[in-house]
Nucleic acid binder design. Structure first.
Lengths: 342, 342
DNA sequence: GGTTAGCACTCTTGGAAGTAGAGTGCTAAC
DNA sequence: GTTAGCACTCTACTTCCAAGAGTGCTAACC
């Protein structure tokens, strides 16, 4: 059932070559370029076996072979040579994060750029979701007769502000009272937990300020959900258009169309596993990405929030390189965010 | 020098037809489809004249004619039939803005979507620049020993918040003092004016808090500049890929590449004229857009801030329709933002 | 028994040649 | 000034052919 070592070496050579050239790989090419010590006829026999076992495909008789999803999967899991990033490449990434950036948004945006520039593929970054961020403090500032501003500070380098309506006649002291009470009640809770707790509070001490508290709770909840869900950053969209597999505009359209709907991107990057995920061709649940591969990873903002970074490219992706880069960027981004938190 | 009325009608027919079909237009097509009451031979003579005058071009002998930039320009300025949006189209736009949205960002994002969906071209929206927004109030909230949060409220539905460092030992009362003083000094000033005024203040009353005030001033300035400059929203990027003129991936790449650099977009949309601007082909300063046309307009946020919306498409753009839609969207967006302000 | 040379066969790719069709520009007649 | 007619041009499409790449099979070899 398993592949003997020569079959593995042949498969590896084919995948490597196809990644490099985008052309179906023939037996002679393998025999010539990769020193396996056997003739092209032997390679042919091996290739025939590999095809039968499902690791290779033939676009048509008398073309070379192309790896199947299964072939890529085996390559990724077992064969691919570890890729060492050059000091230059590492340096380029590190430099991006050297200056201490306080705006998470800029950091995340820059991450999309560095990912796409380093890989020459399409980079996707989802802003951190803060549902697990803990409320540190809540402030209510009087703005006008009928408006106040709600300012939220969390434990996870995340903060937000929003206007809310207040009943005319509400005094600054009232706002102070509300915010003090809410702070006592909510500090330490995650945004996801706010809802229930706040209602409990409301029914006791803050009954008088029902409409205000309602808004505060709603806004806090939205902040936990929205900020992560809606913010999506991309880099290198045009890189896709440079690849031979997307010379056909229709295919490029399908892939770039994914970006027009943030929900598609979320579906693409969603995973239960922590750590690095590689999703190849048909393994992607999203139909539009069936001809692509995605390398993604989860980054952390301290221990309170997390988001995802990803590189999307053709199935014929330089997996070894991309994996190295995604790992590096994830690590540095997480560190960078952790630094911003404290 | 001017074009007699028959020449104008011929030119109009050619532009209309080319916009509709994307195929070079021949004399027989004009004679058949557009009832000008003359034969194709006459049309041929007129077309020959129009070409000599620079309004038409011939891809090669014995192909039909295609409008030149000059031809489009004349068409846009003098010939094109006013386009009435269907109630459906108007309804679709209006619906988008019906719910009162408080987040400017969402509004602007939605604008990009509605523009691209209504036109089937690429939509570009620049977030409003708030350099002219007037400071309404500034708040400094104590967050931790060494951090405070600066909250800015302006007269233009624009607000922002940012963390700043404070010297350990700074008391809440100190912050209150600083913000009171700054409020007195800066309220009513535009963000662009803040710099000089704040320094004057600093050297008098707030000398003790030099590092804090420095940061406040810097942050306010950045808010005025950044928010507008960096925020760019797009819609319908894949629409471009559906157009026959961009079937060649290289051309599509050139155009979509514009979006990867916000500065390019700014250059593309920059104009001194108020109101609606149409920029055709070579009229665009940006080299990457020499094969495109851009219809853009300035929207207002009350009277304190403004931004731009634009539709980018092929030179063979349905100008009449796009102009109507851009006008409509600009109007409704401005109204919508004005409502948000108060 | 695994390996290999040899060879017939298949399929794509690219070029050449030819043809149909669209469109022009000119001329001469109306 | 307008138009029918016609020769001419150029593209786009088709067909055909040859070259090239690659396979799969067979028979010989170690």
């Amino acid at each position: 059932m398993g592949l003997d070592s020569r079959k593995q070496r042949v498969l590896q050579a084919i995948v490597d070559d196809y990644i490099a050239t985008a052309e179906p790989v023939g037996s002679r090419t393998i025999a010539r370029k990769y020193r396996l010590g056997v003739s092209s006829a032997t390679i042919r026999n091996e290739m025939s076996d590999l095809e039968e076992m499902g690791y290779l495909e033939q676009p048509h008789t008398s073309a070379g072979r192309v790896p199947s999803d299964l072939g890529y999967r085996f390559y990724v899991d077992r064969l691919m040579a570890p890729f060492s990033l050059s000091p230059d490449q590492v340096e380029r990434v590190v430099r991006m994060y050297r200056t201490r950036v306080r705006e998470i948004e800029h950091l995340v945006q820059a991450t999309a750029r560095v990912l796409s520039e380093s890989t020459s593929y399409l980079a996707l970054v989802l802003g951190p979701q803060f549902g697990q961020a803990q409320v540190q403090s809540i402030h209510l500032l009087p703005i006008s007769e009928s408006q106040a501003m709600l300012v939220l500070v969390t434990s996870a380098a995340f903060s937000g502000h929003k206007f809310i309506e207040i009943p005319p006649g509400t005094q600054p002291d009232d706002l102070l009272h509300i915010s003090r009470t809410l702070n006592t009640a909510l500090a330490g809770l995650t945004l996801d937990e706010v809802n229930a707790a706040a209602w409990r509070e409301l029914n006791q001490e803050l009954r008088r300020y029902r409409t205000v508290v309602e808004q505060v709770v709603y806004v806090l909840e939205q902040m936990g959900i929205d900020e992560g869900t809606e913010r999506m950053y991309t880099g290198g969209t045009t890189n896709i258009l440079a690849l031979p597999e997307f010379r056909d505009v229709e295919k490029a359209r399908t892939v770039l169309g994914i970006l027009e709907d943030a929900r598609h991107v979320h579906e693409l990057l969603h995973t239960d596993q922590a750590g690095l995920t590689i999703s190849i061709g048909e393994e992607n649940r999203l139909a539009e990405a069936k001809e692509c591969s995605v390398v993604s990873a989860t980054y952390q903002v301290g221990d309170k929030a997390s988001g995802r970074i990803a590189v999307l490219g053709p199935r014929r992706m330089n997996y070894a390189q991309v994996v190295s880069i995604v790992r590096l960027v994830e690590k540095i981004l997480s560190e960078s965010l952790a630094r911003s938190v404290c």
